[in-house]
Write a protein that binds this DNA or RNA. Sequence first.
RNA 1: GGAGAGGUGGCAGAGUGGUCGAAUGCGCCGCACUCGAAAUGCGGUUUACGGGCAACCGUAACGUGGGUUCGAAUCCCACCCUCUCCGCCA
Length: 425
Amino acid sequence: MHDIRSIRDNPQAFDAALKRRGLESMSAQILGADETWRGVSTELQNALAKRNEASKAIGAAMGQKDFAKADALKAEVAALKDSIPALEEKEKETGAALDAMLAAIPNLPAADVPEGADEHANIEVSRWGEPKAFDFTPQDHADFGPALGLDFEAAAAMSGARFAALRGGMARLHRALAQFMLDTQTGQNGYEEVNPPLLVRDATLYGTGQLPKFAEDLFQTTEGRWLIPTAEVSLTNLVREQIVADATLPLRFTALTPCFRSEAGSAGRDTRGFIRQHQFEKVELVSICRPEDSAAEHEHMLASAEGILQALGLPYRKMLLCTGDMGFSAAKTYDLEVWLPSQNCYREISSVSNCGDFQARRMNARYRPEGEKGTRFLHTLNGSGLAVGRTLVAVLENYQQADGSVRIPEILHHYMGGIKQLTPR
RNA sequence: GGAGAGGUGGCAGAGUGGUCGAAUGCGCCGCACUCGAAAUGCGGUUUACGGGCAACCGUAACGUGGGUUCGAAUCCCACCCUCUCCGCCA
């Protein structure tokens, strides 16, 4: 949510930032709606002030048992009463129109975000690790995975496309990855483990920015709740409508949860394999911090995600997303892309975003700065640390052997109960 | 799912139609006392929006949304949430 006052103060800057996102100027429209609302609001407030004054006089007359005077006053106020309901209605309408306008506008990009229309304008910041040279042609996990317990057919039979069942060693490897990630984020990087709700209300999704614009990407239950598309929703909303104590900041949360996405907009993309599923697991990182700390917190979160890839020995590159490729709520986003030998390219495995105060405004999440009167909005950040399903794919493909087996990265051995490789059945 | 109780400021907790934005206590801030601290005393201490250079003024908010009324924390309705008991259940 945008601060209407900052738009009033500097509409040109607002429009310029929208333009960087590839959007039309909106300040004129917004300020028009704002002016309408303020006009009606002032009119209503004046009417209410008059009514309140008269009502007080009636109260005073009643207190002195002067009922004749009270009745006379009542008749006077009754006339005033007619205009109030209409004004109230109008105030609500114009206010809602302004809010709806503001709620549908994405966050403004940070100054150091490169401008561009789509992912082609993203900037590669760095690379880590060397793609391994195979002495055979590396296979697609969708091809050699089924023999190792990656069962697409049985899952499709019960649930349809974009579902998979993991069996035996494959299920264990998936669990090992998730446990390793969670242990690392809690043990080394200072995140508090959370087991959050997976079903949430409208207002919760509004807070993080999935609603009102992106309902078609989500699954909704028959009684109205929504399945979370990412634990970012649950973790960030832990501070909704709260005033957090300054001394407790930053709050760093992590959770291993399933994520549910309809993938409505990606028909035909990544239909093969385990890359794009309706249901997948992810270890999410969320940080709630002071505005002045969010840039540093962003780097810490990025390092926390990168640490997992490094520990697993998976080559990756770090991309700074351009204005046109960022999500709705983000002011600045880095993607981590892992090397997939079968596709001979890097694929997104983590996305780490600083949302500034955008989500905090929508959730009304504040803190009381030490030694200051009043409250300020928090900054929120989120990132994957990492997407477990895609990490499984990366491990399978990068550690595959010519005979169709897969070596288990050493760091996972004790999570695997001594299993050191997956072998085709 | 059934029955009942309840949701008030940072916290606890009064308040059942008329200067109630709200007593009191705790907490917090300032001052006094003190070498200093504690204790004590005095004063201050909600938020949002609008207007104003400012002092300040106005409006709204007692779970949320409606209603009754000249006037609602207080009465009525719906919903949400919490607690207790019963039922069911991993």
